[in-house]
Simulated scan of single mutants.
Amino acid sequence: MANLIYKDEAYEIIGKCMEVHNQLGAGFLEIVYKDALEFEFKKSNITYQREK
């Protein structure tokens, strides 16, 4: 990760992904993880755009 331009942002996003996975565990449909990640991003004021 040393060559990343937005190292701090990438670290924060990956951290949120890991947090969602640790809370929910495995076995859900993708949409469940997307919704949970969206909630975490909003809670942390991380701007994003979901796929269309």
Rank of each mutant, 00 (worst) to 15 (best):
Ala2Asp: 13
Ala2His: 07
Asn3Pro: 06
Leu4Cys: 10
Leu4Ser: 13
Leu4Ile: 08
Leu4Thr: 07
Tyr6Asp: 09
Lys7Gly: 06
Asp8Ala: 05
Asp8Pro: 00
Glu9Asp: 14
Glu9Thr: 06
Glu9His: 13
Ala10Asn: 06
Ala10Ile: 04
Tyr11Asp: 09
Tyr11Met: 04
Glu12Leu: 15
Glu12Asn: 10
Gly15His: 02
Gly15Asn: 05
Lys16Gly: 00
Lys16His: 09
Cys17Asn: 04
Met18Ser: 07
Met18Asn: 12
Met18Gln: 12
Met18His: 12
Glu19Phe: 07
Glu19Gly: 07
Glu19Gln: 11
Val20Gln: 07
Val20Gly: 06
Val20Ser: 08
Val20His: 04
His21Ile: 02
Asn22Ala: 05
Gln23Pro: 03
Leu24Ser: 01
Leu24Arg: 01
Gly25Pro: 09
Gly25Trp: 07
Ala26Tyr: 13
Gly27Lys: 02
Gly27His: 02
Phe28Gln: 05
Phe28Ser: 03
Leu29Ser: 08
Leu29Phe: 10
Glu30Leu: 13
Ile31Val: 14
Val32His: 12
Val32Tyr: 13
Val32Glu: 14
Val32Gln: 11
Tyr33Trp: 09
Tyr33Arg: 08
Lys34Val: 11
Lys34Arg: 15
Lys34Ala: 13
Lys34Cys: 14
Asp35Met: 15
Ala36Trp: 04
Ala36Asn: 10
Leu37Pro: 13
Glu38Val: 14
Glu38Ala: 15
Phe39Pro: 00
Phe39Tyr: 08
Phe41Pro: 02
Lys42Leu: 13
Ser44Val: 00
Asn45Phe: 05
Asn45Pro: 00
Ile46Tyr: 11
Thr47Gln: 07
Thr47Ala: 02
Tyr48Pro: 03
Tyr48Cys: 00
Tyr48Gln: 03
Gln49Met: 09
Gln49Phe: 10
Gln49Ala: 06
Arg50Glu: 01
Arg50Ile: 01
Glu51Cys: 11
Glu51Thr: 11
Lys52Gln: 06
Lys52Trp: 08
Lys52His: 09
